[in-house]
Amino acid sequence: MMTAPGQAPTVPPGPRHPLDPDPARASKARAVFALGLLAALTGLFVGGVVPATVALQLARQARREAYASGGFLTGAAWLRRGERLAWTGLALVAVTVVAAVVVGVVRLAEAPYGQDFAPNVD
């Protein structure tokens, strides 16, 4: 086999064993992406917490299954994208909660303290 100077020689892949399964995309990878997208879209409404946590748990399980499969389960790119979207959704939830707390504290500080009586009441 001839290669260009500076290139590493390529080795043709060995024959596959007939009982080896065909590589397939993990079904959990698609679910992680869908849940991560849902979390990112609903993060500002604080509804993104549930799909984000489910997506992160599924991603963890999918990574374990992909590792145990020895390379026959694919979909790592979908997992990464789904995890990033889930973390984005959680960050949006955190921003929303912090903003709501700040607005609540400011409104509480502006409220009159105690009971306000008329000027002619002792």
Rank of each mutant, 00 (worst) to 15 (best):
R63V: 06
G36K: 03
E110D: 00
P21A: 11
V46Y: 09
F45T: 15
V54E: 15
L108Y: 02
A77E: 15
R107M: 06
R63W: 10
D122S: 09
K28M: 12
A66N: 08
V106F: 11
P23T: 04
V49Y: 14
F72N: 14
A40Q: 11
R84S: 10
T74S: 01
G82S: 12
L35S: 07
G82Y: 10
P18V: 03
A86P: 12
A111R: 15
F45Y: 10
T88S: 11
G36A: 03
T74M: 05
V46P: 05
F33T: 02
T53P: 02
V103N: 10
P23G: 13
P9E: 14
M2W: 02
P21R: 09
G75I: 00
G89W: 04
S69I: 01
G75M: 03
P9A: 12
V46S: 14
W87M: 07
G6S: 09
P9F: 11
W87T: 03
A118N: 11
Q61F: 02
Q7Y: 11
L44V: 03
V54P: 04
L37C: 11
A66F: 01
A40L: 05
D22Q: 03
P112R: 14
G47A: 08
R81D: 15
L56H: 00
P21K: 06
A76W: 01
T42W: 01
V121F: 02
A66E: 13
K28H: 09
L79H: 12
P119Q: 05
L90P: 13
L85C: 13
V54A: 14
L79T: 06
R64E: 15
A39C: 05
T96Q: 13
